[in-house]
Nucleic acid binder design. Sequence first.
DNA 1: CCTTGAACTCAAGTTCACTTCAACTTGAAC
DNA 2: GTTCAAGTTGAAGTGAACTTGAGTTCAAGG
Lengths: 159, 159
Amino acid sequence: MDAKDLLPMGEITRRSGFAASAIRYYEAEGLIEAHRSGGGQRRFERGVLRRLAFIRAASNVGLSIEEIRDELGRLPGNRTPTKADWHRISRHWGRRLDEQIAALQRLKGGLDGCIGCGCLSLRSCAFSNPDDVHGEDGAGARLLPDSLRRPHPTKRASG
Amino acid sequence: MDAKDLLPMGEITRRSGFAASAIRYYEAEGLIEAHRSGGGQRRFERGVLRRLAFIRAASNVGLSIEEIRDELGRLPGNRTPTKADWHRISRHWGRRLDEQIAALQRLKGGLDGCIGCGCLSLRSCAFSNPDDVHGEDGAGARLLPDSLRRPHPTKRASG
DNA sequence: CCTTGAACTCAAGTTCACTTCAACTTGAAC
DNA sequence: GTTCAAGTTGAAGTGAACTTGAGTTCAAGG
């Protein structure tokens, strides 16, 4: 909390592994906060390192910025997650991962069932037509949730 | 093959579930082909429905357009996948799905190991720092491969 | 012939999570 | 006081896979 304890940008990038541009982006998006030096440079409280770790973990689980913001916003009172918060949150994420895994396994199951059938029919093959919709549009249960579809992101900052 | 057997755009969109814009996009990208009517409208051979089914399936597995093009291009001789092709390809995709599942399970495992630890340390927590990199950059094995990171695509044509 | 809906083209827009760029200022050391 | 790495800003760019829009034409029915 002391003025002496505030970290400059370089320190944060080194210790978090995020690029400065990402840090600024997160600040603009309201995921983290920063004080300013007399000349306008950012000075971060130590706690942001924890928040950044949280952000990276969440993003590895596949949460979007918006979801991360929500999740951080739901933290009661103080800003950085406590042990209890983390406990609750990690169960939440665990469920999400379970869903993702289950979705992939359904897809795999469909694939296995299809091996050698050579069908790939638009009407009968559950694999190419998971929703079992042929003409009308409709949103049924899918093999893959949106959160697992068409990944292929931009090259990532490798930190 | 008969001129009578050529399907117009509306038929294709209805039967494939893809939007016309997507069909045109795939044609532009060289994934499918179309004949033209006297007036310049697209007329598709029946086989493209199969190709489109293939494209949807591949995209569900997480292949990019480019990969799908490659995969279609590797089909020997004729254009639409035969039973044997499908057999070979589905094993390929199966491996890919296995990898994706394994990656999620690693992540889940890391999460379970972390539950209640409250650490989320940038240096010691394998979950927030899967690469075990603190300051230097380096690309080690990750919990999640690029193909599963930060999904959240644009709104999808719901077919 | 006229209408209507389906289809056409081409350019530009969308989303997400950032990065890159250009032009400029700070701040710590010497 | 000089130097220069480190920091600042805002705007624009990236990439994938499409969608949207504007303005025009086609094809089939009556």
